[in-house]
Structure formats: structure tokens, C-alpha cells
Nucleic acid binder design. Sequence first.
RNA 1: CGGGAUGUGGUGUAACGGUAGCACGCGUGCUUUGGGAGCAUGUAGUCCGAGUUCGAAUCUCGGCAUCCCGACCA
Length: 429
Amino acid sequence: MKLSQYYIPTLREAPRDAENVSAQLMMRSGMVRKVASGLYSFLPLGMRVLKNVEEIIREEMNGIGALEVWLPHIQPKELWEETGRWGVYGKELLRIKDRKNSEFCFAPTAEEVITDLVRKDVKSYRQLPITLYQFGAKFRDEIRPRFGVMRAREFYMKDAYSFHADETDASNYYEKAFEAYGKIFKKCGLKFWPVQAESGAIGGSFSHEFMVLAETGEDEIVSCSNGCGYAANRERAAVEYGREVKSEDLCLRCKEKGKESPLRFSRGIEVGHTFKLGAKYSQAMQATYLDDAGKSHPFVMGCYGIGVSRVVAAAIEQSYDANGIIWPREIAPFQVILVPINFEEPKTKEWSLEIERELTQRGVSVLLDDRSERAGVKFKDADLIGAPIRVTIGEKGIQNGTVEVKERAGETVIHVRKEEILTHLIERI
RNA sequence: CGGGAUGUGGUGUAACGGUAGCACGCGUGCUUUGGGAGCAUGUAGUCCGAGUUCGAAUCUCGGCAUCCCGACCA
């Protein structure tokens, strides 16, 4: 990919209304643009990262037998009335009327629609279990959108719903989904923590939030300072303790074993949430199957969400420096950025195009900065965009038969002979 | 929803009630070319609507938008 033909409108300064680091860097690096409060356009660079995260999620979901579907973003009021949520969801549910004055909402989640789908087509225990998932926009008319795409009104989400014959099967599947989530966030290069959580508006009996650890996170996590494994969000902890927890409180689990471990408080960004829903929705919507004795039961359900656009922001929040983003390899928009110092110099051009071609053939994503900008501008943009590896091609090196390789995360510059550049880079990617 | 603040080119900002200016960006030309170049020349703005005034970016009222604190939030 040649930068001169791409669309990466980088900014020297961040707009004043970009509050946190990830919002500023996503604006500056030309990944997103703000359209209105809580509404963002993703530009090509932002899309590449979003799609990388999406692909990692898709692979793992398929890996646990989930099937991809596509549900409408606009959903009829009638389905939401069946579960009573049309009334309880409040102003966050964005409601609209069509030309016939029928009422609809923009989907903030899809339990109603998916349960309606499955109850019509799945009738027998023989067809269970089944898990369906989708990627799509979700709308929540937040009171106060903030932190860029982190708390947007419209955002990109993966939501999955599983249907089971009984509680045991649902629990087993919950474990599988929980494991898959761990793999997903690990692959995305994130430092994260699963914590016990209260279920909120989605409801159900049991849930975990996946928190990316970050100082700037909006959520508070309570955990055991001795690492016994206890971790919960603040609301959940308050339920367990029967009151607000304080820093001098002791870990309840350790206390049972006669140990005294103080609680620790950290901050995180919620990127995923898994729920055991039980029969909350299937009962309300009379979604049932017949068992082997011909008896009718409501489905036992689970649901599993990941905020894809939020994962992108969280990754930045966890990895940046004064010059810009430092992408984890797996989700980087480009794995390598080629910076020819003077692209129009014949030898430099020849080397640049050759390296670009060869890397591309090997399946490495490459951005070639073929603009006639000065070196400083190119280096600044390269740092801002944050590709894990930068290869500089300049006349100094060419005289010695070498190019320069520098990792975005480090300081070291290595001189590599041009013949060896391919194997050198492939090893590092 | 309660409290507070702010709206000036694409971005960041300046202007006592009296000529809307600066920097960056963007366009063009020339010179440059290893960490956000120089010169020349262009481009583009007072959130919207009323009112006060000889005259409003500036004062008043209304609307809209954005941001901050709180409550809310998968």
C-alpha cells in the first residue's frame, strides 16, 4: 500500500474536545473522525485495526461452534414488549417511528430478536445446543458520551447468544466461551482481567466482565492483594459484602481459609461481558423446545458480548508513548512501514518498491511512505500510526548495502543487508 | 436529569462595542530533503435567530452544539 494513494489524514494537534489519550491518538493518526457527540466515522486506517480485531474474534467464536448471523439494527417494539424491556430500558433506548407510525428501536442488544428467531425454528432437544453471533453496530443513547469511541452512542460490537436444553449444558458452554474470551484478548495483545460482575439491564443470574487494565479506565475493580484469584467489579463486591467496600476490607475468600488479605483497587476498561441468562428471556417470550419425552421446556440461555471498537481504543490506552500509538503486532493496521528518505532517488525507489513487493507476497501488510515529504515528517507520521516495525531506506545505507530496521516499541536501530531483510523481518513478525 | 463552562477558517488561538488577525494545515511555484524546512503567492472563519446600538465576535434574550462534575450505563 502506497501512502500517497491511501487516506490517512494525520493531525499535528489533537482537537480540543478529544479528552483521553486513545481519543486523541485515534483522531491524530487519522483512524476516526467525530461526526457528533458519541458518533464517529472510521477511516481506512481505523477500519484495518477494527477488522483485525474482528477476525481474531471470529476465529475463536467459530472455534467454539458458534455460527455467524446478521440481525437487523432496527427492531420492532412488539418484541421488546414481550420481555417488558420496552418499558424498563429508559431513554437509553433510541426509539423511532416508521411512516405508518409503527414503533421501533435501534438495537442496543439483541436478546429479543435472537430469541424470537430461535423459538420459531428450533423445536426439539435434538437441535440443541446452538450458538449464534453477529458483528454489528449497537446504539445506546448515552446521557454523556465521552472518551472518543470508548463510550460512543453508536459502536461496533460482537454479540453471541447460546441456547441449551438445561443448566448443566449452559454452564459447560459458558466455561468454553469464557476460555475463548481469554484467548481473544490475549491474541489482541491486551493485559486483561476477568472479574465477577452484576448483570445490569441484560439480567440473568451470573456474569463476568473482561477488564483491560488501564489507569484511565472508567470501571473500578476490587481484587485480592494476595492473588487468590478473587476479582469483582465494585457493584458486585458491594453485593457480596452487603455494603460499599473500602480499601481496609479483607478478601472474603481468603478469610474463609483463615488468611488476612487486604483488598486492592484497580481501574479497568470493560471490553467484554459474558452472562448466564438462564430462562429469563425464553420464559418471557415462550421460547421452548420439546425433550425426549415430548415435554416442553424453556431454553436455557447465555449471552456474550465484546465491544470491538472499544477493544481498539483500549489497546491504545494500554500502549502508546509521547510520539503516538504502539500497536500490538496482532492488531496493527500495518505490520511494517517503509520510510524511504528520498523516494524519488532512483536507487531508493527501486529498493523500496522491491521490499514492498516481496513483503506483500509473503502476506506481510506494508505501508510504503512514498510521499515527497521531508524525513522528519515521515518519521513523525510513522511513529503516530504506530506500525510495529519501521524500515528506513536512505542513501547512506544503500552505499553500504543496508537498510535500517527499528521496532516502534524500542530505541535500537539495526542495519540489515538488503538481501537479508525478508528473512530478518519475517522472523520478527 | 441536576450543577458549571464554552462556542472565531480544517486544527490551535487573538481581537476595548469601531479594519476579523496569527500559527499550523490545505493549493500553486521555486529552493530544500536523516526527526513535523525556507521564500513567494493563494485558500478558508465570528454556531443559528431575534434585540440594543450610528456600529456587535464582543452587550441582552431565545435556540442549538460541545465540554466538565455528579447521577446513569452491556
